[in-house]
């Protein structure tokens, strides 16, 4: 029984090539991440991939869709990897499993699978975790005190540490978190700036991957640039106005998941806008909201919520930014 798809749907082979290239583009960032945070990152990627494949297969079966072709498109793995790279590298095994299950089952398959999900599955999974388990999500490993591989595995699976380990190695907050908490307590900005360049280094990895994807014509330039512009549109003036109160734009670009999101998350063709102008608005909105939630909100980083909120506007954006119908425009562009 060969299924005959309508011709305008991309052939499965094409989707899987694209996804494979996206995965490849993630590799430099992953390598730097492993360098800074240790092999725990790889374990998270593995756990996420296995969970995603199992959940996807189970849901496809339940939906009565052929399992293998859909699994081979690798989109589940991309979601899994993005999630694994957004969650704390030393989070307990159940965290990445719960997040991936929610992303694949609820955010992707319940809406009809690849191509039909209005929300970015990885960001939905991340939002679930940050709302449900804020304490665990705030605990990032400290790059200065790396645990050895065995200790990392022990921590992720058993939640115990070998004798003599420093608790800070697993429970230190992210730089953005330290910054926000400190500023609210009235501490000086200078003393709160990140001590290590690990996050910035990893961010450059995402940047490299993103540039390569753009060269390969797999992602448009509008969304990532608009997102960064949106972020800077608030970060720059506020920083110039009160440099003691607001962190520098560079910090906002390099910290948190800014560049990971710009290259790999807002460029998701399914849940993002599809017209050029729509992409500009979508990306700009994500950037603005990210800054607002990051700086004034209650959660450590705002990217996931910003993306989900802008996902909701996509149908509207697509409708109002469609290329003009003959003679129906009044000189606005």
């Amino acid at each position: 029984m060969t299924a005959i798809h309508s011709t305008h749907i991309a052939k499965p082979a094409t989707v899987s090539t694209v996804m494979l290239k996206v995965l490849a583009a993630l590799l430099p960032g992953i390598a730097l991440s492993v360098y800074c945070h240790g092999v725990g990152v790889l374990l998270q990627l593995l756990l996420a991939s296995l969970t995603a494949l199992a959940a996807e297969a189970a849901m496809l079966r339940l939906r009565g869709v052929a399992v293998l072709p859909a699994l081979k498109d690798l989109s589940a793995i991309v979601t899994a990897w993005l999630l694994a790279l957004s969650l704390p590298p030393l989070g307990g095994w159940w965290m990445i499993v719960v997040a991936t299950l929610f992303a694949i089952i609820v955010a992707k398959q319940l809406y009809g699978g690849l191509g039909n999900n209005p929300f970015n599955p990885a960001m939905a999974g991340f939002a679930l975790m940050v709302v449900s388990f804020p304490a665990q999500m705030a605990q990032w490993g400290s790059p200065q005190l790396p645990l050895d591989a065995a200790a990392q595995w022990q921590w992720i699976f058993l939640h115990t540490l070998p004798a003599g380990s420093v608790p800070d190695a697993i429970s230190s907050a992210t730089p953005l978190d330290v910054l926000k908490t400190g500023l609210r307590q009235g501490q000086a900005l200078a003393g709160l700036l990140p001590q290590s360049s690990a996050q910035g280094l990893i961010a450059l990895g995402w940047l490299a991957g993103g540039l390569w994807l753009w060269r390969q014509k797999l992602i448009p330039w509008q969304t990532p640039l608009a997102m960064l512009a949106g972020l800077l549109a608030l970060a720059l003036p506020l920083w110039l106005w009160q440099p003691a109160q607001y962190a520098s734009p560079l910090l906002h670009l390099l910290q948190g998941g800014t560049l990971l999101a710009a290259a790999f998350i807002v460029t998701d063709p399914v849940s993002g806008a599809s017209t050029p102008r729509g992409r500009l608005i979508f990306g700009f909105g994500v950037g603005l909201l990210t800054y607002v939630i990051r700086v004034f909100g209650n959660f450590p980083d705002g990217i996931a919520f910003a993306v989900l909120l802008m996902n909701m506007t996509v149908p509207l954006l697509d409708q109002y930014t469609r290329p003009a119908v003959f003679g129906h425009r009044k000189g606005r562009s």
Partner: peptide, 10 residues
């Protein structure tokens, strides 16, 4: 205090 939420305890 609970790490990650020092502010409330403080």
């Amino acid at each position: 205090y609970v790490s990650g939420a020092t502010v409330s305890a403080r």
